[in-house]
Design a protein around this nucleic acid. Structure first.
Lengths: 238, 238
DNA sequence: CGACTGTATATTGTCGACAATTTTTTTGTG
DNA sequence: CACAAAAAAATTGTCGACAATATACAGTCG
């Protein structure tokens, strides 16, 4: 009868994790890397991070393994993990892959007749963030914009891949600490994309995406160092 | 002086890991999944696998995390890991991504003037395996063939991504347990690709790659179930 | 003074145990 | 017999400790 069970101790029973420490560690370390708090090349000491998070090493190890797979971290077997370098060459590689992936996803999304409502909301958020001069927030909304398109492609694999690319894409923006110049124009630059999606012409949408991405990476590389884009000029149509 | 140190006990000191258990576990589990020994949907019990490998759970956990990132395994927070389903829809997604990626890498490789010597060796190996009727071995050499092209693109990210896609690509072939019919023809089908690469015309190479991949996935889906390719028809040129 | 060697330290790799949670089985009841 | 609640079992999540390895440092000899 009426067994004395206290399904939830209300007093002092705070830390009962409803979520996994490993997930938290993953998010936190990822953020540290993206923001640049853990600079490129710096080592990730498991014990140190564990202490900082107030956990054991196990969740930290797990988080690090995931970040390795995300490409944010490099690891040598007994040496440890370091934040992977993201130089101009890596950015070109990154954007080449992005180009290939996103020209595909936007075609699929366009063919499926995706609505642009949410996209317009995100553009508005970009604008808002731009007016505050918050470069990083603009970049995050911009990433959401592209993720939204990816989502509507229906290609689950592409969605996963784009998510895992997100960290590096944000890193690339964060590297470029200057660049408050044309922040106001970034929202408007998305109009042609919206129009193309609404037109239902997938080929046109892909071409707009190509131009959009090329412009983005061009700016990025131009600011990072004068390096012109090496082999990124990659037209899909004649 | 001359401290008694035995840097390598020759007798019975076998398990001194020169390599990490976690790596071994990763390879072994991956192979179990690809071959189909761990069928789709089956659960991966950490303790069970650990016992089978003669290790603790830690390396197994690590391996599982990596396989999750490779997309071979699905994981719900407290429920455990299961082998991810790979149905016709997933295969279409996979090959769409592959198409986007490989039409890019072959263009870059071609522009860089890659040698086809190694590729011809791999075609020979395919033929050899085909004559033995070893479907899986043909598939592995075929994967190496494409990996080789990817390698010569110089795009590090694309190389990583293709490697992580490899597991799923092999799984797709393994699913299709029949299919000894046109095994002999598979080697010859690579000739146009080789010719295009040697011609130095990157656009032509990309088109050949597109045809090649479309043909592959077409066969695959046709055998898997009568499902016609849904939205994969994805020409790059007009 | 520099190269080498051996030691000390720091860090990762693995283990066994316990806590938290979920799934399965059992039990009681209408 | 079906159905709900409770107990039991199985499994994952986290921890602290130890072993294996790599790095840093000091001492020695040329």
């Amino acid at each position: 009868m009426a067994s004395f069970e206290s399904p939830e101790r209300s007093d002092s029973a705070m830390p009962l994790h409803r979520t996994r420490m490993a997930d938290l560690a993953y998010e936190r370390i990822r953020e540290l890397i993206i923001v640049g708090d853990l600079p490129i090349g710096s080592r990730l000491i498991e014990t140190q991070l564990a202490q900082e998070f107030g956990t054991s090493r196990a969740p930290v190890r797990e988080a690090i393994r995931r970040l390795v797979e995300d490409g944010l971290i490099e690891e040598r077997p007994h040496h440890g993990a370091t934040v992977k370098v993201l130089d101009a060459a890596a950015i070109i590689d990154l954007y080449n892959v992005r180009l290939a992936l996103e020209t595909m996803t936007i075609r699929l999304a366009t063919l499926r007749g995706m609505s642009t409502d949410r996209l317009r909301e995100l553009v508005a958020l970009m604008d808002e963030a731009a007016q505050k001069g918050d470069t990083m927030l603009v970049a995050r909304h911009e990433l959401d914009f592209h993720a939204e398109i990816c989502q509507h492609s229906g290609n689950q694999l592409a969605i996963e891949l784009f998510r895992s690319l997100g960290g590096r894409l944000l890193m690339a923006v964060a590297l470029d600490n200057t660049s408050h110049q044309d922040l106001l124009g970034v929202a408007a630059e998305h109009e042609p994309l919206l129009a193309a999606i609404e037109s239902g012409d997938d080929r046109r949408a892909a071409e707009e995406m190509r131009l959009h991405i090329l412009s983005t990476v061009g700016d990025l590389l131009a600011r990072l160092n004068g390096n012109p884009l090496d082999l990124l000029d990659y037209p899909q149509n004649a």
